[in-house]
Design a binder for these strands. Structure first.
Lengths: 197, 197
DNA sequence: TACTTTACTTACCGATCGGTAAGTTTGAAT
DNA sequence: ATTCAAACTTACCGATCGGTAAGTAAAGTA
């Protein structure tokens, strides 16, 4: 057995919370997926909320890891491109995480306990910092940095959670096309708006 | 009493589904909000699924209404700007609807019955048509139309559902700023990418 | 006035929920 | 060999879920 039960529970829970949300997922379902009893789960996580909290924590950690190994270029253009690639990559590698975060964004105002943290904040701030640096260097136009980045991040996040629906909505060929084109298109949109011509 | 119980139930249900999702909302809660019994609700909608289906139907109708009164300009630029304004306006006037649709997008692959319809499709197709027209007139660059519009729509939809969280995350001043800047910024991003310079 | 339909109510149901209580098995340390 | 804690199990619980059954009050309609 390569992973601890603890980690396997978090993995199973992440998948199910992504698919059906907090209320739509029962701890029985999560435990059943690993062929252990519900009480085995409750041994590791005393409440459903605590399990959910750990799931969020690990997703946030994965986002942070990507933000942190931040290559330092002199060129703000290269730097924002690199940051964009990391963001796009995150989505493709952690689709479940992206879905859980989107659900958390929807629930945030209602379910109090986690309300204070917005989990993509580090990513947002890192990219805003790059924009502002590029602007002070005269490399970028004077866009409204936060609104600008929020739109870019939003478009990417939205696309990620759309993938399963797009897959069944479009033909195989169309799906393949949009999968290839979306990040290219978003990057171009970002740079066309940002760069002084 | 200005509205029928039927309509008041749909309104109440829309709000609660927006806030807590399908599984997180009980039909008791919805009925309680109008001070009627749960069975009064079940008199109008025989199952929870049917109520939810009607909620979706009315939201889709509101989107369609906006798409349809489509002013015809000769200029594709004016036309895409008008379409963009309508889209942005929709979000501000029907925040609950936007939240329900985002949840539906997340649940879509799991909960079968509504899986076939993607409710923003008409909006998407109308805007794609404008882009292609503008391209054939030489007014727009040769962007990948569907991917392009999907990003714009995604950014807008994402921003809309973020508003409650942003409100409690940012200071009152910052919130006011981003509220003003976001749609301006997104529109600029769209046009900078689209227009031949 | 009698009849029917609409819009409800109270009472009840089995299923499932998250969580408690009380063992049992296992593996490492003394 | 004994102890002890960690990792489970079975049994059970009250609360809440969506939905059924059966009645009632009011409002058209003949």
């Amino acid at each position: 057995m390569s992973h601890s039960t603890y980690q396997r529970l978090i993995h199973s829970a992440t998948k199910m919370f992504a698919q059906k949300g907090f209320y739509g997922t029962s701890i029985r379902d999560i435990a059943d997926q690993l062929d252990i009893s519900k009480q085995a789960l409750l041994h590791h996580f005393s409440t459903k909320e605590k399990l959910y909290g750990e799931v969020l924590k690990q997703i946030a950690q994965q986002v942070m890891d990507r933000v942190n190994h931040n290559e330092q270029y002199d060129s703000a253009t290269l730097q924002i491109e690199a940051a964009f690639e990391r963001m796009a990559q995150w989505g493709l590698e952690d689709l479940d995480g992206a879905r859980v975060l989107m659900r958390e964004l929807l629930d945030n105002p209602e379910r109090a306990p986690h309300a204070i943290n917005w989990y993509l904040n580090p990513l947002l701030e890192a990219m805003v910092a790059i924009i502002k640096k590029g602007q002070s260097q005269g490399e970028f136009k004077q866009v409204a940095a936060l609104a600008f980045i929020y739109n870019v991040l939003g478009a990417q996040h939205y696309f990620m959670i759309s993938l399963p629906t797009l897959k069944q909505m479009l033909s195989a060929k169309e799906y393949k096309n949009i999968l290839k084109q979306q990040s290219i298109e978003l990057k171009a949109m970002m740079l066309d708006r940002l760069l002084v011509h």
